[in-house]
Each structure stands twice: as structure tokens, then as C-alpha cells.
Design a protein around this nucleic acid. Structure first.
Lengths: 187, 187
DNA sequence: TTCGTTTTTTGATAAATGTCAATAATTTAA
DNA sequence: TTAAATTATTGACATTTATCAAAAAACGAA
């Protein structure tokens, strides 16, 4: 829990009172490798903070699993579309390693927004950060070659290669496993 | 101005007081076609609401202009990366048509966040909407073919074809103008 | 360890898209 | 309205990446 508070107060300062209230509402949960945090069709009503471990978000397209994001230590994870709109999720969230997570429901979070302006501010700032992170990834995806995308990934998230299988990384980069294998052999 | 207020209060309700305060700080500006709202290297210190017109964001890569987004009526536009981080913008914002815009400085907006919780809430909700919109575009960009991307664009933003030249649309879709021309001939 | 399973690599070929060049169509400005 | 400039289309060919198949390597459970 301390790790969560330490992490988020880097975004924006929080009073003792707000921190205590967050402690009340975040619940610790652990999952084992390969378990699912969310399956497509379910509404995702929780926001999760990933303390330890790794997971992936993927959806099914023409019978294939498309891994479109990974979560690691200190990431907030959820199916953002489902969490925000309340619609059923299109994606699945699956654990790649055993994880320690902290979970808060959307209802609890919404109530905290009403009570503590500073918590809503923190969320606004978190969204800013996540927005520009996604924007970078988008530009990378659409306007760079497979090799450049892999190089960027190595630069930005080096430990990913030891922790995630090549097949998932290829999917994440939007290329076939064979192409990634060939790209990689040139490094 | 009424259009701006009508639009944003769909996101979240605003008190009279907050609405009045916004009216004080948003300033109307007009630009002619082809003018620049922002050039790369400048820090973007303003958030703009586009009342009428169209514009594009683009950056230079290997001597080519990459158009990575468009703005139309009722869009908020800025160089989000620069606006959020305060770093010089990598992108340019250029008018595709004469535009009527409403502008607010980051400083003024930050001050309003302190004064009005409800304005910061509105911004939080706006970021949520913009986040999932970008997420959809990202998935579209990375995991769909050129033809599918064009079909989606037609479905989601039909008037775009009458208002924006094929070259810019091709760039936006991450394909060459020739490929887009061929894709289009099959419709 | 060892066997069976999964993952990664490699090769051959196919499909999608890019590039360059020429022409046609459209737009713009005098 | 016309001529020049810009934008869009078409063709030929090159490049990138995908797909299918097989072999090699790595991993995991008994």
C-alpha cells in the first residue's frame, strides 16, 4: 500500500486525510500466473494498481489473440473503455506472472472524487500522463517500421524481453512472430 | 461562446458561477486558412476549442510531413504533449480552413481548477473521453489493413473526405497517397 | 534428468504496401 | 475564363511483412 501512495503522490500531493481514505478503499488482491483479471463481455468496474508482477490486455480478432498492452510494476490497469463507459469489455486481462494488485471500485472512486477535490485532481493528472504515453505509442505504431518499433521498445521497457514471450511482444508491436524473430537476429 | 458551454456541459454539469468564470477566460480568436496555430519548437501554452473550421496536427519526419490528427467543430485542440509537459512541441498545428477558436491559457485553466472543483472534474472527464477515443484509433492503426482503416474513417467521420485533401488523409491513415487512391477506387 | 510441449528460428513463397514516374483531373489565382 | 499550380490517379516495379511449413531450441512437469 505504501508503494501505491508513494507512486501516486509523485503525480500530485495528497493530504493525510485523503491518503487515509484511499487506504480504506483500496483492497489488496493476489492472482496466480495465467489467471484472468477480466474476460471479454464483463463490465470492468475496478481500477487496479499493479504492485508486483506483469499482465497483458488482449482481444480476439479472427480467431487470433491480439495483445495490445502490457502492465508492469506501478502501472494502473483496467479496461479503460469498459471502466469509463460502463459497457462490456472487448478485451481480456490475463496475468503473465503472479501479481500483487490493489483494487478500487469505480463507485468508491467516484465517491472519493466528490469528497476530495485533490483525489480527482490526481486522477486528472494521471489521465494526462496516460494520454501522452498512449499518444507516443500511437505515433510509434503508425509511422515506424517493425525494426524501429522493436528498438524503441528495448529502449523504453528493456526488462520486457526477459519477462514476456516473443509471441506476445510481436503481437504488441503489430507484427508476426516470425518477423520479430528476424528483426531481433539483426541486433 | 454559447456553443462551447453547451458542448462541455454535456460532459459534466457546471454552475452559473463556473460558467461565468470560463467566459471571462476564454478568448475568441480567428485564423485564416493555412495559418499556423503552433509551430514545432514552440511551447504550446493554450488549449483551444474549435467552434468552426478544420485544422491538422503534423510533424516532420525525414523531410516528409506526417499528419497525425485533424480537428473539427467542437474539438479541443492543442499539442497535448507540449501543453501537459511544458516542453517544446514536436508538432505543428495548421489551419485547413478559416477557423473560429476559443483559447484559454494553461495558467488560467490551472487557476480555475483550484477555484472550481467542477471545472477540474470536467477536465478529468474530457481526458477520459479523449483517452478512449485515442485508444480506438490506436487499435485501428496497428491491427487493421489500409482498406479497413479507410472504411472506419468514412463511417466515423464522413464529412472528412469533402474537407480534407487525399494526401493528408493518407498520411493520417499511415499509408501512401497512391495506396489510398487505389483503396478508394474499390468503394 | 527426461520426455513431451511450447516457443523460437529459419526457409520458401505470397500478399500488401511503398516508391517512382507519367498522366489526368481539379483547384487557384491572375 | 484561362493558364499555372496543385492534387489525384494509374502503371511498373521494389520492398516490407505475412503466411505456411519444418526444424531447432527452450521450458516444464513427472
Amino acid at each position: 500500500m505504501q508503494q501505491l501512495l508513494t507512486h501516486i503522490t509523485k503525480y500530485s500531493a495528497l493530504s493525510e486525510a485523503a491518503q487515509n481514505e484511499l487506504q480504506v478503499h483500496f483492497r489488496k488482491i493476489t492472482y496466480a500466473k495465467n489467471e484472468y483479471l477480466l474476460k471479454e463481455g464483463q463490465v470492468c468496474r475496478h481500477l487496479y494498481f499493479l504492485e508486483t508482477g506483469a499482465l497483458r490486455g488482449f482481444y480476439n480478432l479472427d480467431g487470433k489473440e491480439i495483445t495490445h498492452w502490457f502492465g508492469f510494476e506501478n502501472d494502473f490497469v483496467t479496461s479503460f473503455h469498459s471502466f469509463i463507459t460502463g459497457e462490456p469489455a472487448v478485451e481480456n486481462i490475463q496475468l503473465l506472472e503472479g501479481c500483487i494488485l490493489w483494487s478500487i471500485s469505480k463507485d468508491a472512486l467516484t465517491a472519493l472524487f466528490n469528497e476530495y477535490h485533490e483525489i480527482e485532481r490526481l486522477m486528472r493528472i494521471a489521465y494526462e500522463k496516460y494520454y501522452i504515453r498512449l499518444e507516443e505509442r500511437f505515433v510509434n505504431a503508425q509511422f515506424k517500421t517493425a525494426g524501429e518499433r522493436y528498438a524503441n521498445l528495448l529502449r523504453q521497457t528493456p526488462p520486457i524481453i526477459e519477462r514476456v514471450s516473443l509471441g506476445y511482444i510481436a503481437s504488441y508491436l503489430g507484427i508476426s512472430p516470425e518477423t520479430l524473430s528476424r528483426v531481433r537476429s539483426k541486433f
